[in-house]
C-alpha cells in the first residue's frame, strides 16, 4: 500500500497495512457462494456470482496496481526481485503440471485404454466378454458411442490458421523483446501491440471453431473420451491465451508509461516468456491432438 515514502533499501519491503487480502477473501467467498447458488438454480445465484467476480477483478486491479506503484517508487530491492522470480518459477511449475495432467489423460486414453477395450494386451477378456463388437480407433467416443456421432475438426483450416497466428505472435513478441533490450521504444510498443491483436484474433477463431464443432460437427464436451480431452485441452489453453493477452495488454501500458529499462524489466520478460510457453503448449496441442 506504500503508506510510507521513506524506505530502507536494505530491508525487504513489506507494506505497513493493506486492505487487499480481506477484499480478496470476501471476493472469493462471494464468488464461490454465487457459483454454488447458480448450479443449484437459486434465482439470485448468478447476481451473487457476478458481484463476486466483479469484486475479484476490482481486487486484482487494485492489488497489482499497488505492486506496480511500489516497484516504480523503487521500494523493491534485490531480495524482492529474487522473490518475484521464484514466484514465477513456482507458477510455471504448477502450469506445467496442470497441462501435463491433461496431456497425460489424452495419452493414457489414446495409447492404453482405447486399445485395451479393443482387445489389445491386458484387455483381451474385457473385449471378449463386454465390448466384443468394438475395434479400437482414434478419434473415438468409445464402444457406447457416448454423445452420439461426431466429426473431428481437420488439421487444415482453422487449427492450421490459429497455429500460424500464434506462431506469428511469437515472432512479434520476440521482436518486441529485442527492441526493449536495444532501447527502441517505438518498435517495442508496435510489436507488443501487434502481439496483443494476434492473441485476440486467435481467441476469435477459437470461438468460431467451437461454435462449428457444437452446431455442425456434433463434437461436444460430452462426445466421449475424444470430446472431453479435446475440449479440456484446447479450452484450458484458450483460457491461458486470454490471460496472456490481458497480461500483455497491461505490459503494453506499462511500456508506454516507461516502467521498463534495458536491464530492468522483469515484468515484461516474465509475460513474454509466458506467451512463449502458451505458444509451445498450442504447438504441442496442434501436433498431438490434430496431427499425430
Amino acid at each position: 500500500m506504500g503508506q510510507t515514502e521513506t524506505h530502507d533499501p536494505n530491508i525487504y519491503y513489506v507494506p505497513h497495512a493493506s486492505r487487499w487480502p480481506i477484499i480478496a477473501t470476501l471476493a472469493l467467498f462471494t464468488t464461490m457462494i454465487g457459483a454454488a447458488l447458480t448450479v443449484n438454480k437459486v434465482a439470485v445465484g448468478h447476481y451473487v456470482l457476478y458481484a463476486g467476480l466483479a469484486a475479484l477483478v476490482f481486487m486484482l486491479f487494485g492489488w497489482f496496481g499497488d505492486v506496480i506503484r511500489e516497484s516504480v517508487k523503487g521500494f523493491y530491492n534485490r531480495q524482492v526481485d529474487v522473490s518475484f522470480r521464484m514466484g514465477m518459477i513456482w507458477f510455471i511449475f504448477s502450469e506445467v503440471m496442470f497441462f501435463a495432467a491433461f496431456f497425460g489423460a489424452l495419452f493414457y486414453a489414446r495409447m492404453f485404454v482405447v486399445p485395451w477395450l479393443g482387445g489389445e494386451g491386458d484387455g483381451a477378456l474385457t473385449h471378449e466378454f463386454i465390448w466384443s463388437g468394438y475395434s479400437s480407433a482414434w478419434p473415438t467416443n468409445g464402444p457406447l458411442k457416448v454423445g452420439g456421432m461426431f466429426e473431428t475438426i481437420g488439421a487444415w483450416g482453422l487449427p492450421f490458421l490459429n497455429t500460424l497466428i500464434l506462431l506469428t505472435s511469437g515472432i512479434t513478441v520476440t521482436i518486441a523483446h529485442h527492441a526493449l533490450r536495444a532501447g527502441e521504444r517505438g518498435k517495442l510498443l508496435t510489436f507488443l501491440g501487434v502481439t496483443v491483436a494476434l492473441g485476440m484474433l486467435f481467441l476469435y477463431f477459437q470461438a468460431t471453431e467451437y461454435y462449428h464443432a457444437y452446431h455442425e460437427l456434433g463434437l461436444t464436451l460430452g462426445s466421449g473420451i475424444y470430446g472431453s480431452t479435446f475440449f479440456m485441452l484446447t479450452g484450458f489453453h484458450g483460457l491461458h491465451v486470454t490471460l496472456g493477452t490481458i497480461m500483455l495488454l497491461v505490459i503494453w501500458f506499462r511500456c508506454a508509461k516507461g516502467h521498463f529499462s534495458r536491464d530492468h524489466h522483469f515484468g515484461f520478460e516474465a509475460v513474454a516468456w509466458y506467451w512463449h510457453f502458451v505458444d509451445v503448449v498450442w504447438l504441442g496441442l496442434f501436433l498431438f491432438v490434430y496431427v499425430l
Binding site: L167, I171, T174, H178, E269, H276, D279, L283
Partner: peptide
C-alpha cells in the same frame, strides 16, 4: 533469455 526464446520460435516455425 531473448536469444533462447528467439531459437525457440525459429525452431517452432521450422517444425510447423
Amino acid at each position: 533469455t531473448v536469444n533462447a526464446l528467439t531459437r525457440r520460435i525459429a525452431i517452432s516455425i521450422a517444425l510447423f
